[in-house]
Every structure is written in C-alpha cells, then in structure tokens.
Simulated assay, not measured.
Amino acid sequence: MRLAFLGTPDFAVPSLAALIEAGHQIACVYSQPPAPRGRGQQLTPSPVHAFAEKHGLMVRTPVSMKAPEEIAAFAALELDAAVVVAFGQILLREVLDAPRLGCFNLHASLLPRWRGAAPIQRAVMAGDTVTGVQVMRMSEGLDEGAILLSESVRIGPLDTSGTMHDRLAAVGARLLPQALAQLEAGIAVETPQAAEGMTYARKIKPAEARIDWSRPAVEVDRQIRGLSPFPGAWTMAGDVRVKALLSRVEDGEGDPGDVLDDNLLIACGEGAVRLLRAQREGKAAQDAGDFVRGFPLTPGAALV
C-alpha cells in the first residue's frame, strides 16, 4: 500500500523498518522538527527522521500538522493509509480522513488503560503485571478508536520502562504489517474499546523523579523501575546526586533513607529496596557492586 509514516522517537523506528521490509511504499515520513540534543545542544534529527533519510525516504518535519499548507500537502500524497507511532502531534479530522482507508496508531498499552503520553512508564509505576501493544483506528478523541490487533506482554519484577520499551516496540513492529495486510484484504475486524477501565497516562513531570524514602518499598521500587532509564528516579547522598536505575523489594527496617548494608539496601517507610544499578551525576551507570567500590555507601549513611 501507499503509506505515510508519522513517528518521532526510537520506539517508532522498528515499526517503520517493518513496513519497509513488508514492501509498502512509504510516500512520506513525518517527524517532529530537529531539536537541540547532547552537550553541544546542536540541532539533531529525531531517530525516525535519521532512519528515514538513511533509507532515502522523503521527510517532512512540520511544526504543526494543523497548518493549512500541511493538511493540503498530506492530502496530495493520495495515500491508502497512514501509520502513526509516537508522532507527538494531534491530527485534525481533515488529516485523519485524507487516506483512503484512514489513519492507524500503534499504542503501547491495552486500551482503554493508559491512554495518553506515557503508557509504558505509567504501567510499570502502577505495578501492572501485564501491558501490551495495540493497533487502533485513529479518531479525534485521545486514543479512543477501535482496536484492530492486540498482543499482551508481561511485566516482570525486574522490568523497567527501558526493557518494556524495547519489547513492546518489537511486538508492535510485528503487529503493524499484519494489521495492514488485513486492511488491504478487507478482512480487518475493528473492535470498539471497552467502556470501562479507562486510565490516563499523563506525561512524567520532573517533580515525580525525586525518591521519597518514607513511602512503602513496593512504591519506591515501582518508581525506580518506571522512570528508568529516563528521566531516572534520583536521591541525594550527601551533596552527590544519585540516580537509581534498577531495584527490587527486600526485607529490612530502619529510618527511611538509611543505608542498611554494604550493598545498597535502603530502608523505606515500609520494608526496603536494594538498588541493583545506579549512577552518580556526571558518571556512567553501574551495577551495584561497581558503584559501591567507587562510591562506598555503608551502614549509617542516609539518602535523602
């Protein structure tokens, strides 16, 4: 089919690669405009933009898809369908209706749970044991469209948003060509979302990243894993900022934030968490053993 692909971050790249591999004609790739990145803050194309250019695809990076000239340019592509994966902009009805078969979104949750911007992080932070990926027909409402294909993925006790991101991206890249093949053959089944069970995955705010050790260990562990690798849950060890990137819940008692042993067991309001991976500001991330060899935290110390 003749397609447009709208996506921006790393999560979307496997899906674009899968559509190319499946033999679809990618008439145009849309992505967010280049943004300052890295220490030099140089303008850098998004991962999808860079991948598309490497494969010789036409790329457009509109500031807003609501601009009349962008709507007209999109309609002029004469598409069979458009695929949207973490694009980062709202699409108006004129855009959604332009392709012959419509626009379809790959969403990283089991809708209607976790509609919105941060479904992977919110699922881990909430303690969900199962999430998934769904291909959905887009409507004007936020992630409200009918579901074409769905696959569940388990969240394990040591999974982070990072590990789930990679697994869900791979599953989504497998589902999208299947959904498009069904659409092309006229056999796609579109199932309306359930009326109950809707939750909203609001964007992660910086204030959510600081660890409050007075909370129960279960909640602290979910926060650490849900915000890993980005933005990273953090705490202070003296005047040194430390990101906690992986943890597990263990038995332990002490004042919240107290270091209980020589291998990063930290007391919480209820129970304790053991930090399995951490990162000092300005340093590389390290497993716990390497971290404490370079920055010992012994019983009697406290994190705040």
Rank of each mutant, 00 (worst) to 15 (best):
E219N: 08
V220Y: 01
L148D: 00
M125S: 09
C268K: 07
G145I: 04
A278E: 07
I147D: 03
K66N: 03
P34I: 09
T129S: 12
A98D: 06
N105K: 14
P296A: 05
R215C: 00
Q121L: 14
G269Q: 10
L276F: 05
R202P: 13
A267E: 07
P9F: 03
W114Y: 07
A217R: 06
P68F: 10
M136Q: 07
Q41C: 04
E190K: 10
R115P: 14
Q178E: 10
I155W: 09
P34S: 03
V220L: 01
A207T: 12
A169C: 15
D159A: 13
H55S: 05
L265V: 12
E270H: 15
D128Y: 08
R137N: 01
A22W: 05
R210P: 12
A302R: 13
G40L: 03
G257E: 06
Q223T: 07
M125L: 15
P36W: 09
E250D: 15
V133G: 00
V13K: 00
A188K: 02
R37G: 03
V95Q: 12
A185L: 08
E21L: 11
V13M: 00
V135L: 02
A285Y: 03
F104V: 12
R167Y: 12
R100H: 07
G162L: 09
D258N: 07
L168I: 08
C103L: 05
H165C: 10
S228D: 02
D221N: 08
G252E: 02
I211P: 09
L16V: 07
G238D: 09
R293V: 15
A207V: 13
V130T: 11
G141T: 03
L297V: 13
D261S: 05
G145R: 04
T129P: 09
A4E: 04
S109D: 14
L176Y: 06
V292H: 01
C268H: 00
T129R: 06
P47D: 03
S46Y: 07
C28V: 10
V48W: 03
P229I: 12
L3W: 09
M58V: 10
D97S: 11
R202E: 15
A22I: 12
A301V: 13
I26V: 05
M138L: 01
A288C: 11
D80Y: 01
E270F: 08
F51G: 02
G269M: 05
E250Q: 11
E53R: 12
K205M: 12
T61M: 03
D128N: 06
L92G: 15
L79C: 04
L149K: 13
L297H: 13
G238S: 10
R137Y: 04
C268I: 04
K66F: 12
L77C: 06
L106I: 06
T199W: 10
M125I: 11
P9T: 01
A217L: 06
G172Q: 01
G102D: 10
I90K: 07
K243H: 14
K243G: 13
V220Q: 11
A194K: 09
H55G: 07
L19M: 08
G132H: 02
V84A: 01
Q286D: 00
S15I: 08
E94D: 12
P112G: 06
A82Y: 06
P229S: 11
M58F: 05
K205G: 15
